[in-house]
């Protein structure tokens, strides 16, 4: 998805993992994904740089659709669609 398209996405669930280091955001994502239905969108807020590599790889393995990343000043917003 392009940045413009991502900006229009509204997540069904947002999980705020800012202020936690590896593997905090990953564990938060794992927990949150259980709370949403297949096809719904999860947004993860993370201030951990490594998360930007970790979440796409995690999505590959779990077969979720990774939609992309929006950068904010001090954190990133990561979007994915549950498989």
């Amino acid at each position: 998805m392009t940045t413009e398209e991502l900006k229009k996405v509204t997540a069904n669930h947002i999980v705020d993992a800012r202020g936690t280091a590896c593997p905090g955001p990953l564990l938060a994502a794992k927990k949150a994904i259980g709370d949403i239905e297949s096809g719904e969108i999860l947004e993860i807020l993370s201030s951990d740089e490594g998360t930007k590599h970790d979440i796409p790889r995690w999505c590959e393995k779990m077969e979720h659709d990774f939609l992309g990343i929006l950068e904010e000043d001090s954190y990133s917003r990561l979007f994915l669609k549950k498989a």
Partner: peptide, 11 residues
């Protein structure tokens, strides 16, 4: 412990 908990996130 980090690898162990991370692995759980990987199912």
């Amino acid at each position: 412990m980090i690898i162990a908990t991370g692995a759980v996130a990987y199912d």
